[in-house]
Design a protein around this nucleic acid. Structure first.
Lengths: 187, 187, 187, 187
DNA sequence: AATGAATGAGGTTTCATTCAT
DNA sequence: AATGAATGAAACCTCATTCAT
């Protein structure tokens, strides 16, 4: 109560709590998708539900926050791929990176599958991802490894399908990517 | 009354009610997927919940019944396609048929997306569909329109992806099919 | 439809149905007590629920009817015992007879247990049974095998307890009767 | 605040609520037996149904909790009786104590009646009670107030019958106990 | 009179969210 | 700011009883 020591301000408890919630939610969503109870998230985070709700006023807000975070990771990685020098198979590498992420994260496969759709939420995610995909696409087209008529919309669908294949364990998703790339490349 | 044939009761009221329930469920599931309340189904069907539960003792049973019915339709249509004489583009026509059905039925896109996965339920659906797809695949390969190394597993993934693309309105699904077919055709 | 034969009137279908319902209910109640669904009774009786409800407008009415029937059997047997010449151990024989009946009929053990209470229903049953018990009691008292201060109320309680012992399989009910009789005899 | 001892929160609100639920359930069960709705219990307790289910995750759990509590009371009282010095009429006093409790509590008469049976649940209750009854029985037999051949099984039946007599208001239960004791004493 | 399908009130249980401490 | 108990609106399902044929 009367501790004279000035609180070190690098990291407040509040911030730490927020992180713990995010981490717990990330882990749980990755494991089981979004069908997880709020109280379970709080329990795993080691905080009370009240705290959880203070940070994220709504179940949706929490899911959104995780999605945003993880999506940003994907986009950052995509950015790095796009900025790298290797130009020809950038798109392939982007798809494989997304696959790797989704294969380890059930929640994210749900998010990405939805995000590639035209509903309200996560419009920016799609746009950001497709913007980068567009760059890679241009280069691939310049190299002749992808057909001229291919659009980012096509990539959009391929990614959506990829998410579904992974989420439902519908087969070997790397093979799916190969097929899709062949499809984009042909002609 | 004066029908010469002994009046066979072709449709009892009970059967009619069953159909009304099925139709209501089908419409609601098509419109909004499976997140529909039993009481809502009953209301739309114009029957009491008790009646609904008499026909389908469980929420799952109702979903299953609709899925079975619609799945059978798809498979029957696929069968007809496979039995038709035209051999070259049978696979393409199969995919388009599936697309048409799913595009009008949100519930079915959920069903098919899941069905193409490796979980327990609806295993037969997948197998039946893939069996027919396998025939069409063979023919296409004989015609050289599909690569020799393509398997029904690839078709499985393509269909799963297709369902996701449609369900999430992730783009022009006919174009998705073209891309996928090109991918299977290449090499 | 145009059968000329006059219907034999010894036993109408309606009467036969009533008996089938009674028999089914008796058997089911004996087996499982009164927690049996009306539709189950109808099914076992081989009639529709509607028929069942025509005969017995209420679940309670059906239970009541069975109770009445079976109770009448008990009372008749008691009557015969009382009218027999053997005077000394009539009460013992009455109790044992009741025990035999209840041991084979879970529903009846419920009925008798309740009937010996002071609630509304089955007042007459209790009175009829106790009237006969009273006669036997008198004789036993005359013979000195039962104490002078013993009343039919005491017998009432002994029977109620007997029903409970049997219904709950709480021990050897014949031994219970011995103890009770010793209790009534003593002094 | 100025308590020297570190303020130990003796009773949190949660505990108070738990007690309110227990008390409400106890009162309702005592009044009407176990055929009481959960929502009614919640209403009387002055809490929401959710709270009730937080404390007792199941209807059965609540009934069990009440039964356990009250049963423990009975056994504790029996224990005290057995530990008291007065040896001769301990059994009588035990029975009367049980009678007093059951007479004020319909739910408990149901519980005890069942508990004395040979089904699975509440086996320990019966055993605990009969263990104590056994001690009292031994002493009574040593004093000659109960016959040598009497067993705890006999007491078991007497208690079961007592519960039934009380539950169904089948007469003066104190008199029932007298008769039963006379029965055990005789010979 | 018989049938059994239909009814819907009523019961249990869950879980996102609120709120008193 | 943190806590977690409390809340109560749903959602599912059952079964005694009614009613059209």
């Amino acid at each position: 109560m009367s501790t004279p020591q000035p609180r070190r301000r690098t990291r407040t408890d509040a911030e730490r709590n927020r992180d713990r919630v995010l981490e717990a939610a990330r882990a749980l969503f990755a494991e089981s998708g979004h069908d997880v109870q709020m109280s379970e998230v709080a329990r795993v985070a080691g905080v009370g539900v009240g705290t959880l709700y203070r940070k994220f006023p709504t179940r949706e807000a929490l899911i959104e926050a995780i999605a945003e975070q993880r999506t940003a990771d994907i986009i950052a990685a995509a950015r790095r791929l796009a900025d790298a020098d290797d130009p020809a198979d950038g798109l392939a590498r982007l798809l494989h990176h997304v696959g790797e992420v989704l294969a380890d994260d059930r929640g994210m496969s749900e998010v990405i599958e939805k995000a590639m759709g035209s509903g309200e939420p996560r419009e920016e995610t799609r746009e950001a991802l497709l913007a980068i995909a567009g760059e890679l696409l241009d280069r691939a087209q310049a190299h002749g490894t992808v057909g001229r008529e291919v659009t980012t919309g096509d990539v959009n669908m391929v990614i959506c399908g990829l998410a579904a294949v992974i989420r439902n364990a519908a087969g070997d998703w790397r093979r799916y990517i190969e097929v899709a790339l062949d499809g984009l490349r042909s002609r």
